[in-house]
């Protein structure tokens, strides 16, 4: 199974590479757009952190680290979620799941591999890593093996949380195709919009909502609190991966229920908009 997944990833990476390098103008434009998007998406918070010397109670360097972490955490779901795999509600709602159902492989495997586009978003990975390294050095962060392990675990947790959360909203399209397509986009956008902000200032109710119902806080804020020592204790380091695991379980359950329902009602609409393009 692992060999097949690797083979499929290699196939989709080739398709992605071929598409990006189809001509020189597109190649340049593609990476230019990628770079501008990456910079612009964090510039606002970065500039505010500079102006206000941080966003209380976070110092400027801590905010920079958080921004970098958020960028890198977003990279993996983006890399695996092309062709509307991350926005799966669009595929389900537009009747495009049928294209997967005629493939001789499990649906989950198709979804895990079909959106793989490793050349996309590369320019958000590099600045993300750069911001973290720069901020880490300024803060004198010691990257000991246990810390690196916790970092990797939390990064994976943050990525998985976003993926599972997007999938949860996306799978709602099995039950309400049109409504879910709209809401899913808004819900994922909200995660992206708020992932770069320290959320300490929020009231307890809102803060809880943003690490549970809309887990934007799990994208960077909560794991960075643990990694930068703003939250003490081993539990804080495990919170994000644990929450991500719970979200993944919920997503899997919803997927199974959704597939059962899809077999009963199917999709009464079809549009090729966004399909394999």
């Amino acid at each position: 199974m692992a060999a097949r997944i690797l083979r499929l990833w290699a196939l989709y990476a080739t398709l992605d590479g071929m598409w990006i390098a189809r001509d020189f103008r597109s190649f340049i434009f593609y990476y230019l757009a990628d770079a501008v998007t990456a910079v612009a998406s964090v510039a606002g918070v970065l500039l505010l952190a500079q102006r206000f010397d941080g966003i209380p109670p976070w110092t400027r360097d801590q905010v920079v680290f958080l921004l970098g972490f958020g960028m890198v955490a977003r990279f993996v779901p983006d890399m695996l979620g092309n062709y509307n795999v991350l926005h799966i509600s669009r595929r389900i709602g537009r009747g495009q799941l049928d294209h997967i159902l005629v493939q001789p492989q499990p649906v989950w495997m198709a979804l895990l591999t079909e959106g793989f586009a490793p050349f996309w978003g590369l320019l958000s990975l590099a600045p993300g890593v750069g911001l973290m390294v720069w901020a880490g050095q300024r803060m004198g962060l010691e990257a000991t093996p246990p810390w690196l392990l916790a970092f990797a675990l939390n990064l994976a947790g943050a990525s998985a949380a976003l993926t599972a959360y997007a999938a949860l909203w996306g799978f709602a399209a099995f039950f309400q195709p049109r409504a879910a397509e709209e809401i899913s986009g808004s819900a994922v956008d909200l995660m992206t919009d708020l992932k770069g902000f320290p959320l300490d200032a929020l009231g307890p109710g809102l803060r809880t909502a943003l690490v549970t119902v809309i887990p934007a806080g799990l994208m960077a804020w909560y794991p960075c609190r643990a990694l930068l020592g703003l939250d003490h204790g081993i539990a804080a380091l495990w919170a994000t991966p644990a929450a991500a695991a719970a979200l993944c379980c919920a997503a899997c359950l919803t997927f199974r229920m959704g597939m059962k329902r899809y077999a009963q009602v199917g999709s009464s609409r079809y549009t090729s908009f966004g399909h394999r393009r």
């Binding site: 505010l48 966003i55 909200l190 902000f197 959320l199 929020l202 809102l206 809309i214």
Partner: peptide
């Protein structure tokens, strides 16, 4: 609405 509430709280902190 949730996004608005979050941004307002962040500005107050700033």
């Amino acid at each position: 609405l949730l996004r608005l509430a979050a941004l307002l709280a962040i500005w107050r902190a700033v």
